[in-house]
Computed example of a mutant assay.
Amino acid sequence: MNHFTIIFFALTGGIFLSVQGGLNAQLGSLLKSPLLASLVAYLFSTLFAFLLVLFSIKQVPSMQQVKAIPFYLWFTGALFSVLGISLYYYTIPKLGISTMISTGLVGQILFSSLAGHFAWFGLPEEPLDIKRIVGLCAMVIGIVLLNNK
């Protein structure tokens, strides 16, 4: 798969996350509970993921592969996901979707830059050099300007 296609997928994923944030924030407002909206979203996400796996998986992991996975990896990603998404659903109706998504993006950009620099989570190292730091500052300033009323 070429680099352009991967970038396109990343942009599309960002669009999808904005759409789901807006729809599920509305669900949370109507249910009067962002946590309940998260539960509903995750229940249906589980169903959709199950169907996608059912029709696309080529090989089931072996028991040896499953046993080699550290215990904490089975639940920590889900914990951060439900907390982060619930915070999105809570803050979107209060801030507006563009303000919330762009503010959340600042958090993602800053944390992911640190995580990449130090190669946390077993991911590839992406050292912070002056060019990246200037780019990060420009993005953060741009988002601040977008949200300055």
Results as ranks from 00 to 15, higher is better:
117 H>P: 05
36 L>P: 04
54 L>Q: 05
92 I>T: 01
62 S>M: 08
24 N>Y: 06
75 F>L: 11
43 L>F: 04
2 N>L: 10
87 L>M: 14
44 F>S: 00
4 F>T: 07
70 P>N: 08
71 F>S: 06
14 G>Q: 00
9 F>N: 10
41 A>M: 09
30 L>A: 15
82 V>S: 10
140 V>K: 01
8 F>W: 12
105 L>A: 12
35 L>A: 15
2 N>E: 10
91 T>K: 10
127 P>K: 07
107 G>K: 06
114 L>S: 08
71 F>A: 13
57 I>H: 05
104 G>T: 01
135 G>C: 10
93 P>Y: 02
103 T>S: 14
92 I>M: 00
50 F>H: 00
149 K>I: 08
100 M>I: 04
26 Q>G: 15
45 S>L: 11
141 I>E: 09
57 I>K: 06
119 A>R: 08
110 L>E: 13
72 Y>C: 14
21 G>Q: 01
26 Q>Y: 09
30 L>P: 14
43 L>N: 04
120 W>E: 10
19 V>P: 08
93 P>Q: 00
144 V>W: 04
77 G>C: 09
148 N>C: 14
141 I>N: 08
127 P>T: 07
116 G>M: 15
25 A>N: 03
27 L>C: 06
77 G>Y: 07
91 T>G: 08
35 L>S: 08
139 M>E: 04
112 S>H: 12
100 M>N: 12
50 F>E: 00
120 W>P: 07
22 G>P: 03
97 I>W: 05
33 S>N: 01
16 F>L: 14
48 F>V: 03
26 Q>D: 15
23 L>V: 07
103 T>R: 05
3 H>N: 11
22 G>K: 01
128 L>S: 15
134 V>L: 15
80 F>L: 09
85 I>N: 08
114 L>G: 10
94 K>F: 00
130 I>T: 13
7 I>H: 02
30 L>W: 05
44 F>Q: 03
44 F>C: 01
107 G>Y: 04
124 P>M: 14
106 V>M: 08
141 I>L: 12
125 E>R: 11
